[in-house]
Design a protein around this nucleic acid. Structure first.
Length: 424
DNA sequence: TCTGGGGTCCTAGGACCC
DNA sequence: TCTGGGGTCCTAGGACCC
């Protein structure tokens, strides 16, 4: 049987775990980046009770936050990733779950080697309590025949307090469970597909389950059929993590809009350097570099435009200079003067291992080895002295600041020795 | 003033081949 | 008068996920 573990309001729970005095109080985590603003990413149930929702722009709910003394944390992803790894390690050490795997920063799947309903519930409760005792992160557990049904079970574990955070969904209870399950909540059925199904008279998961497979194939794609099979208890989805990412992206929304090509060049250069660094961190090279731009979709009074261009390289590379050059040339391809730009980014794709690079017929292999030495030096300087210690000239020495100046990041209690919690 | 960022997979259509 | 049939590969866009 499949076990699904889902951390409750994960980012908010991490902050509460690191600030025990906030236990039982309204806490919100928002991804305030250098551009300020941001949206609510996670919130405790006390914050939800105030009417706050995931996705609310912070500036729209500032009064509500202030009036109710809500603590707002800027999101600190590396910290949450670190806590998630600890959780993973803790469960593996417990040796109850087989083939335990991370699905996302706050979700995990594994297998429990029994069919007995009581034993399953007991095992899941044991795991849940161990996690909570070791990390202070509350979790919900679902157990069923497939990943998708496991997530259905977890939904019940979360929504019905009687389950005490653990729901086992055996084969003979699937139809009952699906009958009370909104179609839009099914894993794999998103905001576009749910209305399409509703138009065909499918409102809940049981109606979807009872629909002929051929109809599903016609209305949805092959993934829809996989979801349908999973609901029938037939495993059809794999969650294996690929060895290396197929694309790497870095993008930012600016606090202030700009129409200036030179300014955009310097920001795109920053992003290109950032993605190149991520690429080298996973020992990869890429063959294509894309840049994208978009205006502010919330400003209906302004002309809207959004576009992306891709530059192909002759030889796969992880050299910041090549990637930056390619990103700038892609930017120049899509840039249109006279528009107010709000967001830009760089995406790397066609990614392969840096161990076997196919050279250009006329290229000097010496050059590649020089490049990787230079990049290694650049990375170690950056690690030691910070992101801006060594820069490409293209990143600019002085550039218009499109971000807010009063930006403050949050503490790294679990990843930086200087931020470690002091206990008295 | 202020509305995120980072991924995967599938498909239709176009370009090409013989 | 009449202009086929069978493939592959790539890409942009759209769906989904967290």
């Amino acid at each position: 049987m499949i076990l699904h573990i889902d951390c409750n309001t994960f980012y908010a729970s991490c902050e509460v775990a690191l600030h025990p005095d906030l236990q039982g109080k309204p806490v919100v985590v928002a991804n305030c980046n250098e551009a300020g603003g941001g949206i609510i990413l996670a919130l405790t149930k006390e914050a939800k009770a105030l009417g706050l929702k995931r996705g609310d722009p912070v500036f729209k709910v500032t009064k509500l936050l202030n009036d109710n003394n809500v603590t707002v944390f800027p999101a600190n992803l590396p910290k949450y990733v670190d806590i998630s790894r600890r959780l993973m390690r803790i469960v593996r050490e417990q040796n109850i779950v087989v083939n335990f795997q991370q699905y996302s920063v706050d979700e995990f799947f594994g297998e429990l080697p029994t069919d007995d309903k009581d034993q399953l519930r007991e095992a899941a409760l044991k795991i849940k309590h161990h996690i909570e005792q070791s990390t202070d992160i509350p979790v919900s557990c679902g157990v069923s025949l497939t990943y998708t049904l496991g997530k259905v079970a977890t939904w019940y574990a979360k929504h019905y307090p009687g389950y005490e955070g653990v729901c086992v969904l055996p084969k003979d209870k699937i139809e009952v469970a699906l009958n009370n399950f909104p179609i839009a909540e099914v894993w794999g059925i998103g905001r576009r597909t749910a209305p399409k199904l509703k138009a065909n008279g499918i409102d809940n998961a049981l109606q979807f389950y009872n629909t002929d497979e051929r109809h599903i194939r016609r209305w949805l794609n092959i993934n829809g059929v996989c979801t349908w099979k999973e609901l029938h208890g037939i495993p059809s989805i794999s969650i294996d993590n690929p060895e290396r990412q197929q694309s790497i992206c870095h993008s930012r929304t600016f606090a202030y809009m700009t129409s200036d090509l030179n300014t955009l060049r310097t920001y795109i250069s920053d992003y290109a350097v950032a993605v190149a660094r991520k690429l080298r961190a996973q020992h990869s090279v890429c063959l294509t570099v894309s840049a994208f731009l978009s205006t502010n979709p919330f400003r209906e009074d302004l002309d809207q435009y959004s576009n992306m261009a891709t530059t192909k390289l002759n030889v796969a590379t992880a050299d910041s200079r090549d990637i930056c050059k390619a990103a700038i040339s892609a930017l120049e391809e899509i840039y249109k003067p006279g528009l107010q730009y709000k967001k830009a980014g760089v995406i790397l794709s066609n990614i392969t291992s840096d161990e076997n690079i196919q050279f250009d017929l006329f290229q000097d292999p010496e050059q590649t080895s020089k490049s990787s030495k230079l990049m290694a030096a650049l990375d170690s300087l950056t690690d030691k002295y910070g992101m801006d210690s060594v820069k490409l000239a293209a990143q600019g020495f002085e550039k218009p600041n499109l971000n807010l100046s009063n930006f403050q990041s949050s503490q790294n209690q679990s990843t930086n020795i200087n931020d470690i919690i002091k206990a008295k």
